[in-house]
Design a protein around this nucleic acid. Structure first.
Lengths: 238, 238
DNA sequence: TGCGTGGAGAGGTATAGCCCAATTAAGCGA
DNA sequence: TCGCTTAATTGGGCTATACCTCTCCACGCA
């Protein structure tokens, strides 16, 4: 919970201090000391305390009532969908992930993919098709599209590992968020064969547009998940 | 975009000013004036400018690069999944929702539904099957299961409106969160007919367990969505 | 007993100024 | 010409202070 990096800044130390208070015996809806008390006690200015409390409020660890005080929030069961790679996802589900590359190549973006990646339809893109397996059985067939000009030499590399790791370590591209569309379809015979199921079986279609730290689109990926082996769990707050 | 309430505070005015700048001709990744320039120009302190920029950064209208400047972000389609009813959902998508009740009745919970609602398998449950339509065309076939002892008389009521509203106004049950599983399937002929599509068409299966303000399960609903007319949009943060 | 009103105390907004850290470009030297 | 150093610029963090609005309770009046 408490991060060592917190000690880099005063507001981080204040934050850790408050987190410790909450973890050590305080109950939800208990009142925290006032901002001015924290400031005096920790020898920092009130603005710094507010900075730390803002962060904690953002994460729903505390809530504030104007004129009244700051209180410990109810613990949230924070299972909101997260941005994880297939590899991380499978390990979390207790299965052993592996990957088989089906084919790779370059092609013109075209209208659909081009618009998703903010590129001209005539731009060159790198395309990677991979089957992702869990415990040796196919789960997912994914087709990744990347701006070829930003990933020189990528297609000659080993592509069975995490693409996100490769993008970060080799091309300095850090993934920050993604927009995802989840739909359903029935599998074409060719795709069904790659996934080792009967033709026209049900599948989840996931189209994912990944965005980097500068809000630029990184990749557009279309994945087909076997419906009998995969589903999404989502926790939603009102 | 620009809100009238913004004028209540200086930071709101600063914020509006910057938003206007962005909307009037600035392109993504264009550089904004520096924080100190804004402060001078608008006659406010730099902290106030930073406050406004923090809010805009939070909403991903701008991004900052330490030592370099503040820049206009790429426009984002911000459709985070929320806990909405079908009715709200369709209105937001610009369509007119309606409902047709297929059948209602009571039955024993059974093992599967009972465990989802934390009830004995022998408990009596109310079951409602409804077809939900958008602009007059079927989109979703839902089967709702409720603890019969908590919703006396519900099945005799008008069931074409929002079930959440009915639960709140008549039974004091306020929905606070939900756990949802999203999968895919092909439609049985009987279900396909109710949804007005060919048998064995693709559909999304959504199983939703709704929890009230006291953390008690309220309903368990299984919905089948026509894949050609519905998909989920999700925004994910790393 | 009941009500309402003021004051203390809480968070919210804003100021002016200090130093730090990252970036960038200009200038200098090999 | 290339590469390194340096200085200016920009955002990041923090301080100390001031004044605002909202809440809530105690006190006093009817």
């Amino acid at each position: 919970m408490s991060d060592a990096r917190n000690t880099d800044h005063k507001s981080g130390r204040v934050r850790s201090h408050i987190e410790r208070l909450i973890d050590d015996g305080l109950q939800p809806h208990d009142k925290l000391p006032t901002e001015r008390q924290f400031a005096d006690e920790l020898g920092v200015s009130r603005m710094t305390v507010r900075h730390a409390l803002n962060a904690l409020e953002e994460e729903r660890r505390v809530y504030r009532v104007h004129g009244s005080g700051t209180f410990v929030a109810e613990p949230t069961i924070d299972k909101t969908i997260r941005l994880t790679s297939f590899t991380e996802d499978m390990i979390e589900r207790g299965m052993k992930p592996s990957t088989r590359v089906v084919d790779v190549g370059t092609e013109f973006a075209g209208a659909a993919v081009g618009s998703k990646l903010s590129l001209s339809p005539a731009a060159e893109i790198a395309r990677i098709r991979r089957v992702r397996l869990a415990d040796g059985a196919p789960v997912c067939l994914e087709t990744v599209h990347l701006d070829a000009s930003r990933v020189h030499g990528l297609l000659d590399r080993e592509l069975t590992g995490s693409l996100y790791d490769l993008l970060a370590s080799r091309y300095g591209t850090v993934v920050s968020r993604a927009e995802q569309r989840i739909g359903a379809t029935v599998l074409e015979p060719a795709d069904a064969e790659l996934l080792d199921v009967a033709a026209f079986s049900a599948a989840l279609v996931v189209e994912r547009r990944t965005i980097d730290q500068h809000q630029r689109p990184v990749e557009f990926t279309r994945s087909l998940y076997r419906a009998d082996r995969y589903s999404f769990l989502i926790d939603i707050e009102r």
